[in-house]
Design a protein around this nucleic acid. Structure first.
Lengths: 166, 166
DNA sequence: CAATATAATCCAGTATTTTCCAAAAAGCAA
DNA sequence: TTGCTTTTTGGAAAATACTGGATTATATTG
């Protein structure tokens, strides 16, 4: 297996022109990939996903003959909008900066001057507004606890019904 | 796989004569295709779809024996009307502008002076009135959240019913 | 504490968008 | 048809936004 990539969190901020300098450690991970070619994707949970181009292609490759379907299906057109409209090809600049697409800035709360966190996500990097990232961490924790709760209930249930002894 | 085309969102506005200048990035995608030959289609969801001519052909060519079907089916006749009546051929001007067909302006809320968004949809571009696009995004988001919710419930359910163990 | 590396700010050149204006075309009435 | 008005088209100028580099500040390392 290839070496682990895209890990950890780093603070960074959006400059006056709406750009963000990627932390060098994460930058190196991109350079090992397709170099500066990346795809920016505006996630529904309000973070900007940054993927190497080849990773993105893997994500989207299973769509044969899109045009034919688009004519007949509103649902399918929405699908195209969702992936087309909320994604953008870009390259990482020589100085390691990327420009946040102007129309993504407001919804992502990544406006010029705002504080952000770059989060490694194994297949790429996510840029979060600092405050939103704090909230997302809460969500992750909460969700984990619900899973744990479900597990505990299952275990106790099994003991009570004799399918399992301790 | 070919390089990604028709991506992202850009703000633009309708000039006093009912024309819109396509953002340069999307313009380049058209130039890679059939050059200035495009089809304008007034979508039922109230956006103006702009497709390269060849894409449009792909969309419509998988309809064998249209005449025979038209005789039998009201639904099919309606389809023909929609694709016939709500579509026009145009070319992109040397300055990258297209004229919104006058009959489409009112229903699409793309009247002179109004604010719009050009949305890349992988197979072409859609021009949305800004406000209508905001609403459409809500729809997309709502749908995403329902999917997410279902997924979470499925996960906890699987634990409880023993199809998954930690 | 010094040296180095990294991040943030500033500034100017470039590209793009928007507005404005003139020319051409089309419609209309006499 | 002819002359007039209105609409449409094309182009250029002004305003705006974007890009890239360089400089300054901050943090990290030895």
């Amino acid at each position: 297996m290839t070496k682990p990539r895209f890990f950890g969190q780093e603070h960074c901020l959006i400059d006056q022109n709406g750009r963000v300098k990627l932390p060098t450690r994460l930058l190196r991970d991109f350079q090992d990939f397709d170099q500066p070619e990346i795809m920016l994707h505006c996630l529904p949970e309000n973070a900007l996903a940054v993927y190497p181009l080849s990773i993105w292609k893997q994500m989207r490759e299973n769509q044969p003959r899109p045009a034919a379907k688009a004519g007949d299906s509103l649902y399918y057109r929405r699908q195209l909008r969702r992936f087309g409209g909320f994604t953008l090809a870009e390259t990482i600049s020589k100085q390691g900066r990327i420009t946040i697409p102007p129309l993504f800035r407001e919804p992502l709360s990544l406006t010029p001057g705002s504080s952000a966190v770059a989060v490694g996500c194994e297949i790429g990097v996510e840029i979060w507004n600092s405050e939103l990232w704090r909230q997302e961490q809460e969500m992750i924790r909460e969700y984990e606890q619900r899973l744990a709760q479900a597990e505990i209930e299952k275990q106790t249930g099994e003991i009570q019904h004799g399918r399992k002894t301790q």
